[in-house]
Amino acid sequence: MIPLAALTMWPMTAQADVTISDGWARASILASRPAAAYLTLRSDEDDQLIGITTPIAGHVTVHGVETDANGVSRMSAIEALKLPSGETVTLAPGGMHLMLIALTEKLEEGTVLPLTLTFASGAKIEISVPVLGPGASGPEKE
């Protein structure tokens, strides 16, 4: 893991005209269990988030939460996350999130998680998000 002092400043903008803010991950208890990360995306042009990678997980997917007519919620993978021009798309606890599967190490509170986001426009954005405690609900706002 990268030390917390190496944290990339937020928000970040790249050639994709996508602004990424409020990124964070929740510490994991075991490397054998999936972990979750969250962030907010806003694009100046219609685009799609089509891939996410990190060196500490075998696979990263965007998961949405669907609730059926009986009120039962379940997660489902989203192949391409649409980013409509000018709209904010938020990944947050209880809703859409990044699911990190097949971790090579557990996420430790106080470190950062490096992520590479790939967009349909061809752009790739590299970011690092802070890893907060296992019970965290997000970064504290000042």
Score class of each variant (00 low, 15 high):
Ala92Asp: 11
Ala92Lys: 15
Pro93Glu: 07
Pro93Thr: 09
Pro93Met: 11
Pro93Gln: 09
Pro93Leu: 12
Gly94Met: 09
Met96Lys: 14
Met96Thr: 15
Met96Trp: 11
Met96Phe: 14
His97Asp: 08
His97Ile: 11
Leu98Ile: 07
Leu98Met: 12
Met99Ala: 15
Met99Cys: 13
Leu100Ala: 02
Leu100Trp: 01
Ile101Glu: 01
Ile101Tyr: 03
Ile101Val: 12
Ile101Met: 02
Ile101Cys: 00
Ile101His: 04
Ala102Val: 11
Ala102Leu: 09
Ala102His: 13
Ala102Ile: 15
Leu103Pro: 00
Leu103Asp: 02
Leu103Met: 05
Leu103Cys: 06
Thr104Phe: 01
Thr104Leu: 00
Glu105Trp: 07
Lys106Phe: 09
Lys106Gly: 13
Lys106Val: 14
Lys106Tyr: 12
Leu107Ala: 10
Leu107Lys: 05
Leu107Tyr: 00
Leu107Glu: 08
Leu107Arg: 15
Glu108Tyr: 14
Glu108Arg: 14
Glu109Ile: 06
Glu109Cys: 01
Gly110Trp: 05
Gly110His: 09
Gly110Gln: 06
Thr111Val: 15
Thr111Ile: 12
Thr111Arg: 08
Val112Gly: 10
Val112Cys: 12
Val112His: 05
Val112Leu: 06
Val112Thr: 15
Val112Ala: 07
Leu113Phe: 09
Leu113Trp: 06
Pro114Asp: 04
Leu115His: 01
Leu115Tyr: 00
Leu115Met: 04
Leu115Glu: 05
Leu115Val: 02
Thr116Asn: 03
Thr116Leu: 03
Thr116Ile: 03
Thr116Val: 05
Leu117Trp: 08
Thr118Met: 04
Thr118Glu: 08
Thr118Lys: 08
Thr118Ser: 13
Thr118Ile: 09
Thr118Phe: 07
Phe119Thr: 05
Phe119Lys: 05
Ala120Tyr: 00
Ala120Met: 01
Ser121Glu: 00
Ser121Lys: 01
Ser121Phe: 01
Ser121Gln: 00
Gly122Phe: 09
Gly122Ser: 07
Gly122Met: 06
Ala123Ser: 08
Ala123Glu: 11
Lys124Gln: 11
Lys124Val: 10
Ile125Val: 10
Ile125Gln: 10
Ile125Asp: 05
Ile125Ser: 10
Glu126Tyr: 10
Ile127Arg: 03
Ser128Pro: 03
Ser128Leu: 04
Ser128Val: 11
Ser128Gly: 15
Ser128Gln: 12
